[in-house]
Design a protein around this nucleic acid. Sequence first.
DNA 1: CCTACCGATCGGTAGG
DNA 2: CCTACCGATCGGTAGG
Lengths: 196, 196
Amino acid sequence: MTQEAIINAGLKCFASYGYSHTSLANIADEVGIKKPSLYNHFNSKNDIFLSVLASVGDREIDYLSSLEATAEQQSIEKRLHQLYKRYIQHLSESMEGLFFKRVTFFPPEEFAQDIRQMFTKVESKMNELLCPIMEQGKKDKALRSLPTETLTSAYYTLIDGLFLEENFYDRDVFEKRQQASWEIFWLGIQYPAREE
Amino acid sequence: MTQEAIINAGLKCFASYGYSHTSLANIADEVGIKKPSLYNHFNSKNDIFLSVLASVGDREIDYLSSLEATAEQQSIEKRLHQLYKRYIQHLSESMEGLFFKRVTFFPPEEFAQDIRQMFTKVESKMNELLCPIMEQGKKDKALRSLPTETLTSAYYTLIDGLFLEENFYDRDVFEKRQQASWEIFWLGIQYPAREE
DNA sequence: CCTACCGATCGGTAGG
DNA sequence: CCTACCGATCGGTAGG
């Protein structure tokens, strides 16, 4: 369907160039039609963007759901680390991740509210994955008995930092940052505290 | 001097709207002159941007130098935490910090190299502040004996994460993130490891 | 430092 | 789904 093709083309363009740097001609080219033909499927550039945003939100929720089943029987460390690595990889390699970055960091003002709403939905899905692991870890005496919010807040800041750095540093510097950050984080939350 | 006024106006506009969303008319308005008059001082929009970039680089180096003297006699924890809090506050409250964010995260492609070069200069100045503290901390047995690069990498990821979050979350969520992240980071690097 | 104007590009429309 | 065109805005120039 052409409408779907336009949404995918829009995702690619908005993720690559940002909202204002994407012209309707760019999107039309990507689809293989002419600019005015877009108006058979959408009422405005604005309209296309909001459809892409909704689509990305849905896909992210689906992606997070697909991570939910992973490895219930693993150790808390492995489960947290695996979620960390997978999610970072997803954000850095998928078109949705790039779109997310473009759009959450400096949202086009007119969409700030819609973007925030989408983001909040994805974040609370992420909480559904993360909080049970943290709570299980505390119950098992594998994590320090800190408030769950403290544990998740620090975890999110880590991911956000790497999210930003992935855009800016070479692959190898990024890899070092990722490993170092995890090492310190895990030293900080694990119980009993590792000596030496 | 008008040239200086243009650089400051440019800083404000580029930081607030980004490069492409800033029109020469915006900058001229901010200075209080008409658009064509800008060309008496600069050859192009490009030229104005590069001058702003160089100016911001110089100011950031100066700012970091001003932090250098702080509190040699304090504990390692206090010195690291103070640097952390001050730098985050600076990034979140100054025009230079906002410019930095706009420009490092999604650099206008044509300036990617100049921006990277400026960033590298600021980062190595930051290393001059941070590495001695980390090394002193290890010598004093106040920090775990991890590679300095591991300690600084994790520290930078923290700052980058908060840098991003400051833009997106309310003041109070941001405050929680900042405190939680520091708490876990400090638990991770301090020596001897804190039990309980 | 200004007024007046240029060519290019944008989102969007008319009309078929 | 197309060709042809609109008004607005942009960076930049001419000329004084």
